[in-house]
Simulated assay, not measured.
Amino acid sequence: MKKIQDNYKNLISLKSLLQPATVTTAIVPLQPQQEKIISDWERLVAQTERINQMAKELEGAILELKTIASTFKTQHPLVREELCNNICQYFVVGVPCVKQKPDESFILTMRKVDLFRAEREAGLLAHQLRQQTKKRLASQQHRKNKVGLRLTQGADSKGY
């Protein structure tokens, strides 16, 4: 059997506990390390980029919903007319957006989704093409008139 040793000889005396000990090192206050600040800043920037990317994807999904609803209306004329006319209603919508201010702080805001931009752009393009076609036709007509006038003048001068 193992003998239990007397540990009372190693006890710290009460006297030594009551005497103040001299401290040679101070506890350093907790300060954020530069690497941690940079790491946290990078996480913050990455999260703002993630939010903005998700907002772009959400906007794309919203515009795709509108396209699908429009296509549905044109491809399924046999569906009840009142359902097709009101298959999807559109109100003003927005997506979250994180912007960075000049002082490098961030602001979480909302960006409006323009649901009818494609239609406006298509209408503007159609208008521009019509104008170009009118100008081209007018120019061609003007050239024809000039050529016809020259031919007539040439025939008159030859005495035909």
Rank of each mutant, 00 (worst) to 15 (best):
6 D>L: 03
19 Q>A: 11
160 Y>K: 08
33 Q>K: 14
46 A>P: 03
148 G>T: 13
1 M>V: 10
142 H>W: 11
92 V>R: 13
80 R>C: 02
119 E>M: 01
79 V>Q: 00
114 D>F: 02
111 R>I: 04
117 R>D: 11
8 Y>T: 15
14 L>P: 01
68 I>G: 01
95 V>A: 00
135 K>Y: 07
26 A>W: 07
142 H>F: 11
89 Q>W: 01
44 L>K: 12
24 T>H: 10
6 D>C: 03
69 A>I: 07
125 L>Y: 13
74 T>C: 02
28 V>Q: 13
78 L>C: 02
148 G>L: 13
73 K>P: 02
63 L>D: 04
50 R>M: 12
128 Q>R: 15
12 I>S: 06
22 T>C: 04
129 L>R: 09
129 L>V: 12
140 Q>W: 05
81 E>P: 03
38 I>W: 08
14 L>N: 10
154 G>W: 04
24 T>R: 07
9 K>C: 05
22 T>K: 12
102 P>V: 04
55 A>N: 02
69 A>G: 05
86 N>V: 02
59 E>P: 03
128 Q>H: 11
85 N>Q: 09
6 D>R: 06
132 Q>I: 06
107 I>W: 06
119 E>W: 01
11 L>I: 14
5 Q>C: 06
120 R>A: 02
111 R>C: 03
140 Q>E: 14
32 P>H: 09
51 I>W: 06
55 A>R: 01
87 I>E: 05
92 V>I: 14
121 E>C: 02
11 L>C: 07
98 V>L: 04
31 Q>G: 02
147 V>L: 15
5 Q>Y: 10
151 L>Q: 11
106 F>R: 03
114 D>W: 03
42 E>F: 08
63 L>Y: 04
157 S>V: 12
123 G>M: 08
122 A>K: 13
80 R>M: 07
131 Q>M: 08
9 K>A: 13
74 T>I: 10
63 L>A: 02
84 C>V: 15
143 R>K: 15
17 L>T: 11
114 D>P: 00
139 S>M: 08
121 E>A: 06
42 E>V: 10
109 T>W: 04
159 G>V: 05
84 C>Q: 15
33 Q>F: 08
2 K>V: 14
68 I>T: 10
47 Q>H: 09
78 L>I: 09
